[in-house]
Design a protein around this nucleic acid. Structure first.
Lengths: 195, 195
DNA sequence: ACAAAAAAGTTGCAAAAGCAACAGAATATA
DNA sequence: TATATTCTGTTGCTTTTGCAACTTTTTTGT
């Protein structure tokens, strides 16, 4: 079946670029294992983490970002990764063999896409908060809801976390300090507790 | 077929609330015609437009936002609208009749979802810009790319536009004024030209 | 056509966030 | 284990953004 979809599996080392959005290709990628991120590099030096990818995350030209003239966007892996690349055309069309599994694949794909939609919506929710504190709290609440616990781990270094929230790193750390002092949160290393 | 999916068509008047995210329901809605928006009302008075919905846009609990303790999120129509509501379960599962059109429906759904993913990604791109000016320019470039023209219409009042970019209205208008003065854009009423 | 309401645009001032240049801590590397 | 590198956390200063109060313009409804 994978042959029928022109699928191919590839491995990448931490730090490698998996996919760049500058050259339109008719494929989608599915992260099989590892952690990756969609990152935008602005030519003025600003870096933003547009999306965090975990296993089963799906990405590709069709589903995603269009870099502007003064930026480039790429999927970069944070850890060693395996990725399945699938031809977009042969995926959505009925295959010649009319194989049953093809139908199932489309169902699975629907699930992956709807998960992606959900995670992008969460992303919009965080980024549409007005202040750094509100962004932090909104994201913390998402993590807490995901773990069903008021204690959770940040999946970022502070540098990446700031780029993820699209705010200045030192301003973010300053705000975290205030929130700690005001008794809103507890934080040591990457472990956060909402109080 | 629509019966088999427990689908029902409903009409709404401009300003009416189509869907609220506080009571989880197992349905998705597809906007058939009109304009609507996903809006978050924070209890401190802040209003944000999380998403703009046009005909064929799809929305629902499964695909979307989770309101926090101090906010509520709803789909509100801007103009008169018709919406098709579909039962999520019966949509994704194979139906008893194994009707051919059911398979086609899933394909169509895949298309709608992938469009939604794309528009949410664009949204993330805008909101992850650091300054008001960058947000404006990023959004303008999206509109220009969509119309294939450097002149385009804003689909908002200035009030809604600011809520869409998640910035203060007067600060936004101030910035638009500066950009006009610096010769970056031309703007009269809702017509914008990139220079 | 007129009044009322909504939206657009201005401005001064206050608050928040960005920036840059550090010092100290933690990690990685030889 | 020493050394380099990256990350974390601080701070003073600057710039941007938010806020509130207001005037002007546009739209709507009768």
């Amino acid at each position: 079946m994978l042959a029928c979809m022109k699928a191919q599996k590839r491995s990448f080392y931490a730090g490698e670029e998996i996919y760049s959005f500058d050259t339109p290709r008719k494929i989608v990628g599915i992260l099989l294992n590892g952690q990756a991120a969609v990152i935008r590099y602005e030519y003025n030096g600003t870096r933003s983490i547009l999306e965090n990818l975990s296993p089963k995350s799906i990405f590709g030209e069709h589903l995603s970002f269009v870099p502007s003239d003064d930026s480039c966007i790429a999927v970069v892996c944070q850890t060693d990764c395996q990725v399945l690349f699938i031809d977009y055309q042969s995926m959505t069309r009925t295959c010649q063999n009319a194989c049953a599994c093809h139908t199932q694949l489309i169902r699975n794909l629907l699930q992956l896409l709807s998960d992606k939609t959900r995670s992008l919506s969460e992303r919009v929710e965080v980024l549409s908060q007005r202040s750094i504190r509100e962004k932090l709290m909104c994201y913390f609440m998402q993590l807490a809801a995901g773990k069903n616990s008021s204690t959770f781990e940040l999946p970022f270094t502070m540098i990446d976390f700031a780029d993820f929230l699209s705010v200045n790193r030192s301003a973010m750390i300053r705000e975290l300090g205030k929130m700690k002092k005001e008794g809103l949160i507890q934080i040591s290393k990457r472990t956060v507790t909402l109080l």
